[in-house]
Design a protein around this nucleic acid. Sequence first.
DNA 1: GCAAAAATTTCAGGATCTGCAATGTTTCAG
DNA 2: CTGAAACATTGCAGATCCTGAAATTTTTGC
Lengths: 204, 204
Amino acid sequence: MTIVDSADELGRRDRKKLETRAALEHAALTLVAERGLAAVTVEDIAEAVDVSSRTFFNYFPSKEDALIGPGPASAAELRAKLEAVPAEVPVLEALRLITRSELERVQERPEQWMLRLRVYEQNPSLLPKLVSSGSEAEQVVMAAVARRCGVEPGTTGYPELATGAALVAVRVAMTRWSAAGGRLALTDLADEAFAQLAAGLPNP
Amino acid sequence: MTIVDSADELGRRDRKKLETRAALEHAALTLVAERGLAAVTVEDIAEAVDVSSRTFFNYFPSKEDALIGPGPASAAELRAKLEAVPAEVPVLEALRLITRSELERVQERPEQWMLRLRVYEQNPSLLPKLVSSGSEAEQVVMAAVARRCGVEPGTTGYPELATGAALVAVRVAMTRWSAAGGRLALTDLADEAFAQLAAGLPNP
DNA sequence: GCAAAAATTTCAGGATCTGCAATGTTTCAG
DNA sequence: CTGAAACATTGCAGATCCTGAAATTTTTGC
C-alpha cells in the first residue's frame, strides 16, 4: 500500500461519477449525431443512460454542455505553462507551444473527438462554443500574454488579438483534422496555421 | 410624385414595424444594462413596449437576438463588395476594406452601440455572438475568399483562417472602441488591428 | 366603406433549467 | 460490524423560453 495513491485510484463513489458523466457525454454525442441537436431532448439522453433528467442537470448545466467536451485542462495550468516559456520566445510561438499539448490530448481520443467535431459541423449553433471566446481560459491566457508583453490589458489590443488569432488557428486545425478523417496529424495542421499567422497571412 | 420612392418612404404599416422592432431592441438593451441578462424576462421587455410576449417572438427568435443588433448588411452584399475589390489587393487588405464600411455604420450610432457593447462586456455569454462564427455571413465571406485565392474551401484552411482572423480584428477593435468611450475612431482601431495581423503579430 | 392582407393576440403545450425536500448509497470512524 | 455523516440521485413544483394554430384587430388598396 503506497502512501501516494495513483491519480486514478478513486473510491467507488467517484469512479461511478466519472462513469456516469462519460456515459452521458457519449449518449448525448451519439444521439445528436444520429438525429440532430433539436431532435434530442435531455430526457432522451438521461433515459439512454438510465438516470433521471434531474441527474443530467447535476452533471451539465445545459444540453449543449454535454457535447462540448473537456475544455482546456485548467486556467491555472494554462497560465503556468505560458509563464514557463522563456521570455525571448515570441508570443505567437509561445501560444503555439501551449496549445500543442492541448491538441495532443485531443489527438489521443480520435474517435471521440471526430464524432464531436462532426456534431459541431452538423449543428453550427454549437460552433461558437468550440473554442469559446470569453471563456475563463481565454481571459487567463490573454492576461498572461499582456504580462509577457509588458502591456496593460485593454490598451493596445495586442493580447486580445494574439489570443483570439491563436484560438482561430486551433479551431481551423481541428476542423481540417476532422475533414481529413484524422489522416493528417492535428499538431501539424496547427503548426501550419500558426505559421501562416506568423507570416502575416500572405496570399497563398 | 416621383416614380422611384426614396428608400425610407414606407407605408404606415412598415413604419410601425420598424418602430416596434427598434423599441423592443431599445427596451431589451436598457433593461439588460440595468439588471443583467438573467434578471430580464421576455415578458419584461414586451411589457415595456406594451406588446404581448408572443409578439416579441414574432420579431426575434430569442431573447439574445434582440440584443445582438443588425449584423452585416446582407450576405449577398458582403460577397459583392468583396468581389468588387481588385484581385491584386491582398486578401487581408480586401477583408479590411469590406469590414470598414460595416464599422462605419456602427460608428454612426455611437450611443446605441456603446450601450450594446457594455451589455456584451457584462454578459460574457453573449460574446461569442458579437461576431458570430458559423454565421451565414462568415460562411459567405469565407467562400468568397477561397474563390479569390483559387483554393478549394476546406483543403488549405487559409480562407477559414483569414476570415476568422479578420473577425477577431473587428471584435478587438469594437471592444477597444467601447473601452475608450468612443474617443478613438473605430475605423482607426480596426486598421491598427489589421496592420498587426498583416505584420504577423510581432511582439510589441 | 369594404374586402383582402398582414400584424397582434390569446391559448395550449413542449422543453429547458432551478430550488428543495426526500430517499438512497458510500464512506469512515469507532 | 455498525451507526452517523457525507454525498448522489430522484421526484416534484415552478419559472422561463419558444412554437404552432386559431381568433381578433389593424392597415391597405380599391
